[in-house]
Design a protein around this nucleic acid. Structure first.
Length: 437
RNA sequence: GUGGUCGUAGCUCAGCUGGUAGAGCACAGGAUUGUGGCUCCUGCGGUCGCGGGUUCGAUCCCCGUCGAUCACCCCA
């Protein structure tokens, strides 16, 4: 008894059948269109990298548990990329001196993480990465990244009812912890993680966690005023350059008319340690999908791992899985018919087939997509095939048409059919194409 | 990693307190050999995830296991 192999894709990964691929291409090409309209250029890097480039910035635990890593045949420790940022930092560092700054670079890599798949989170996903490196004026770069993030979602048809960009600044939090709470830098990270959780837990639980971290009543009270008084708190501490900076960003975004998309949210921290300035997360506002869609921030130290020269950098990564969930949740997801517009039906005689093939080639040379039938036996089957493939036009050259130098065209949407000479056919097809656009 | 839910035809699912399975869709053929959709007829299709237990008898109850999925943990 034959045991068949499983047809399922590997856990946490997906097959993309042609109809799904069409939607994916729409998603990716929309991304490309928008970021390129801001002057971004596309790059790519290898799927496999030396393991060590991920060790520097992430904790051991994550590397061990969430990275696909192995020894290659030369006993080198390598990893399948779990994120793109170290790769792009490596590329920037390598050619740092010759690259014309600032760089606006983007990529749409597939990334792998070894983890338990769940809603919005798979083992393989694609992620739009947009980064600006080496801007003279970091403020302008930060603004541009925020505007780009908003424009991307708008390009998919989303508006301020659908999402909100929650913005914060790492330095402000650090200053609160250091200057107001007098906490040493070692405790910033665990407290940051607790603050990150704030919206998911109750106030009592939140206070409890902070107490366990060693905060007293007074410190917790101060922290609450930072978290809850928001802009008022920033105004009161405008002598801090970070607070002043964020207020300036918010003002600028207001002047740009995108303030309705932005919330200043001091509870946004983000997991990575390497953020040094603004941090943000874009949230779905739908009650059934209240989750972080994507996020990013400023990370000025990262290229320092690869060279003496540090390049300031700001960027974000937008995953395809969460974006797809978001678009579907709001009815913004799109599906597309196949591109092929012409189906050439065939009769059995070789002479007719050769003639049909020649015409098909001529039409292709004029830019049309023509699918040849691979079934010359039954015309009904061939029409059925074209219909089921959603190809709108069927061409037929039978012996009658052949003798008369004509070609029959049937429009499957209307049911109408006409006979044309080849020149008339070309004119007809071009006219039709124009009307569709 | 922890917990919940679910595994029945290629797909989506039904199957009553336990009596060895059904629908729709899909697929194949025909009504219709130079014309698709609609309709009708016929057919193909199942170790009821796997292993064990209880029982005269298990798709159904129990245990285990594997898989899927959701939530949590963790976290882009």
């Amino acid at each position: 008894m034959a045991e068949f192999l499983s047809t399922k894709p590997y856990k946490g990964s997906r097959d993309f059948y042609p109809e799904e691929m069409r939607s994916r291409e729409w998603m990716f090409s929309t991304m490309s269109r928008v970021v390129e309209s801001f002057g971004f250029e596309r790059y790519d890097a290898p799927l496999i990298e030396p393991l060590e480039i991920y060790l520097r910035k992430t904790s051991e635990e994550i590397v061990n548990q969430q990275i696909y890593s192995f020894l290659d045949r030369g006993e080198r420790k390598v990893a399948i990329r779990p994120e793109m940022t170290p790769s792009v930092a490596r590329m920037v560092a390598r050619r740092f001196s010759e690259l014309v700054k600032p760089l606006r670079w983007y990529s749409i890599p597939n990334l792998w993480r070894y983890e338990q798949p769940s809603r919005g989170r798979l083992r393989e996903h694609w992620q739009l990465n947009c980064d600006i490196f080496g801007a003279q004026d970091e403020f302008l770069a930060d603004i541009e990244i925020l505007l780009l993030a908003i424009n991307l979602l708008k390009a998919f048809g989303a508006n301020q009812e659908h999402f909100r960009l929650k913005l914060s600044h790492r330095q402000i939090l650090n200053q609160v912890l250091y200057e107001l709470l007098s906490l040493p830098p070692e405790s910033w990270l665990p407290i940051g993680r607790i603050i990150d959780k704030k919206d998911k837990i109750t106030v009592a639980e939140f206070e409890d966690l902070l107490q366990k971290e060693g905060l007293d009543r007074e410190q917790i009270k101060t922290l609450f005023s930072y978290l809850e008084e928001k802009e008022d708190f920033l105004e009161r501490h405008a002598q801090w350059s970070s607070a002043h900076y964020l207020l300036r960003i918010l003002k600028f975004l207001e002047d740009m008319g995108v303030r309705p998309y932005i919330d200043y949210d001091p509870a946004i921290v983000r997991g990575f340690d390497y953020y040094t300035g603004i941090v943000f997360e874009v949230y779905d506002r739908h009650p059934e999908n209240r989750r972080s869609l994507f996020g990013g921030g400023r990370y000025d130290e990262l290229t320092g791992a690869f060279s003496k020269e540090k390049v300031n950098a700001v960027g974000f990564g937008m995953g395809d899985v969460t974006l797809e969930d978001f678009l579907k949740t709001h009815g913004l997801w799109q599906t597309f018919p196949r591109k092929t517009e012409l189906f050439m039906a065939l009769f059995g005689e070789e002479e007719l087939i050769v003639h049909s093939q020649k015409l098909a080639q001529k039409l292709r040379d004029h830019g049309f997509c023509v699918e040849m039938s691979l079934n010359s036996a039954r015309l009904g089957r061939q029409f059925e095939e074209a219909h089921r493939k959603e190809i709108p036009l069927v061409l037929v050259i039978g012996s009658e048409e052949y003798k008369a130098g004509l070609v029959l065209v049937k429009d499957l949407n209307t049911g109408e059919q006409r006979r044309f000479s080849e020149e008339e056919l070309l004119r007809y097809l071009k006219e039709r194409q124009k009307n569709l656009k």
